[in-house]
Amino acid sequence: MAQEVRGVIAPGKDEPVRIETVVVPDPGPGEAVVQVQACGVCHTDLHYKQGGINDEFPFLLGHEAAGVVEAVGPGVTDVEPGDFVILNWRAVCGKCRACLRGRPWYCFDTHNAQQRMTLASTGQELSPALGIGAFAEKTLVAAGQCTKVDPRVAPQVAGLLGCGVMAGIGAAINTGNVGRGDSVAVIGCGGVGDAAIAGSQLAGAATIIAVDIDDRKLETARSMGATHTVNSRENDPVEAIRELTGGFGADVVIEAVGRPETYKQAFYARDLAGTVVLVGVPTPEMKLELPLLDVFGRGGSLKSSWYGDCLPSRDFPMLIDLHLQGRLDLGAFVTETIGLDEVEKAFERMHHGDVLRSVVVL
């Protein structure tokens, strides 16, 4: 029987979010209903609210979530009611050309629930953010979007792996292939950038340089594992990174802002044959211009990191285990816990750089 729950809706472009009653249908084939326990406030949700993703309003926001499976539909065997799960937005299909080549983290046909949740007041279909829609007491997802992890972990910590923290850690470990003794520079020290710093430390990088224009963020970056910091409002970041790496540039530079000017900084701040990883999300109108001779002459790799090139079934449990062992402090990313009715204010604090992560606890 369909259920009615509270959820945070973005009704139109740049309009304030509001709490509405949402109808969650019973799970159909391959689907699951999850009781959401916590959901991080991610910058991607703000992009949805601002119309930066698409114009399929109204959106049911929230996607960085953890909770307990309440019910599953026909044919679901990987999860069952009572399982504690992190929700992911790349449920691999197992059948596309990437999956068949043994590269499921690139899956080109990830799937979501077939049914739509609706507004109780009008019956209008909702577009769930990244196919999840977890700023709600319960949500309907594809069962493949549910990744079981150790239930001893706190939900407000576990959910962060559903997007930003996984994107950053994966950008360093999976996409950038950071290794022992490497030098790494991370440009942009928000939640994703700090996660890239933590991932670089996990991988054994010897030098980790944090770059930002906000001294508060640079201080936090040090607590996450940065060995050096550069305020790029006051110093040329390319020259500073070269100076800190023997004049050569970093082995891996991770751009976690998503702007042409910071991407160029990343490009020129890497060593010859080094790697640039773009994990910051640009907006559609942004253009990049680089001398093609420089692209050729500097060699190396220019990579984009999709969701940290993660495989949720592999990476989520591993990172939760590292957290429980005390080797990865996921709790350090949580600045505050809030209720559903505080999401709009959390967006404002995010915009002003006052928080690393606000987490909705239900």
Rank of each mutant, 00 (worst) to 15 (best):
V281S: 08
W89P: 01
A250E: 10
N231K: 07
A158F: 02
E289H: 03
G94A: 08
A120T: 07
V238R: 14
G191E: 03
P29H: 13
D78V: 02
V192L: 08
M350L: 15
E219R: 14
E20T: 03
T229M: 06
E20C: 03
A129F: 03
R259P: 01
A158I: 02
V157G: 01
G28T: 08
C93S: 03
L61H: 07
Y263R: 04
G326L: 04
I132C: 04
G300S: 00
L61N: 07
L293G: 12
I187L: 13
T110D: 13
A91W: 05
A2S: 15
H43F: 10
G30D: 10
V92I: 14
E342H: 09
H352Y: 10
N177A: 15
F267M: 12
F316Y: 15
S232G: 07
D341W: 05
R116A: 15
G190S: 07
C189Y: 10
T147E: 02
M166P: 02
E255I: 03
E15L: 13
V355N: 12
R90E: 14
D14R: 04
E285R: 04
M1L: 05
E31N: 09
G176F: 01
P317R: 04
H351Y: 00
H111S: 11
N88W: 04
C107G: 09
A129L: 10
G258R: 02
D83I: 12
G67L: 04
K138W: 01
E219F: 10
R18N: 02
A266S: 13
D45S: 11
H352M: 06
Y263I: 13
P282L: 11
E125G: 02
I132A: 07
A66D: 09
Q156F: 11
D341S: 12
V72D: 00
K49N: 12
V22P: 00
E31V: 08
G102V: 11
L202H: 01
K217E: 07
T220W: 15
V360A: 09
F84A: 08
G164W: 00
T44R: 04
G12W: 05
G246R: 03
A2N: 14
V36K: 04
R152M: 01
V281N: 07
A32C: 07
A226T: 09
C39W: 02
R327P: 03
G73Q: 05
Q201S: 09
E348T: 14
T207E: 13
G131E: 05
D315L: 06
A185D: 02
Q50W: 01
T77L: 09
G246Q: 07
L272E: 01
Q124T: 13
V41S: 02
L293F: 13
T262Y: 13
G258W: 07
Q156R: 13
V24R: 00
G339R: 11
H111P: 02
V23P: 10
A113P: 08
E285F: 03
G225S: 06
M117C: 02
A240Q: 13
S183F: 06
S304V: 12
C310L: 14
D329V: 03
F296K: 06
A2C: 00
C107K: 12
A273W: 12
V8M: 11
E4V: 15
T139F: 02
P81F: 08
